[in-house]
Amino acid sequence: MAEHMTEHIALVVNGTPREGDVEPRRMLVQFLREDLELTGTHVGCDTSQCGACTVTIDGMAIKSCTMLAVQADGANVKTIEGMQAADGSLHALQEGFWAKHGLQCGFCTPGMIMAASDLLARNADPTDDEIRHAIEGNICRCTGYHNIVLAIREAASLVRAGASAPTPTSITA
């Protein structure tokens, strides 16, 4: 077998410059999960159907299981781990998902939140139909999507209210 080279890549992940040497066949999701140990981004299928691996590049949602790590060389990637503010306060979407019980097992949640962030960047006040259409690339097997729609709607209203939402200090708040 011919010798295959690795490629050096440098990119910004959650605001931090990161580098690595990867086989060209390494998918971005593997680079994030295995090399950078950002395991919040998940793999739920092998055919680009489920969206559990969704991250954003320059704010645009993409499926990191269907992008080579070398293709992301130089990119500005955001994963679920980068959604909280520097002071640890939750992003409005995280707040919305928590408040409205938009998750159960939590496995699809990071991808769902990242896909929703793409929507809210384009549409500050989406209708339920627009929300449902925007998360068509993300499968949730637990919630029936009912509360995910409520969660994203809640997040949109929090954003419109002009803030990333305050974080409750207690679950009973």
Partner: peptide, 19 residues
């Protein structure tokens, strides 16, 4: 009440088998 397990899941800090 809100779920106590959610903070780890909504921040990507859940720990599943493959993690």
């Amino acid at each position: 009440v809100r779920r106590t397990e959610d903070p780890r899941f909504i921040t990507g800090k859940g720990r599943y088998l493959d993690d």
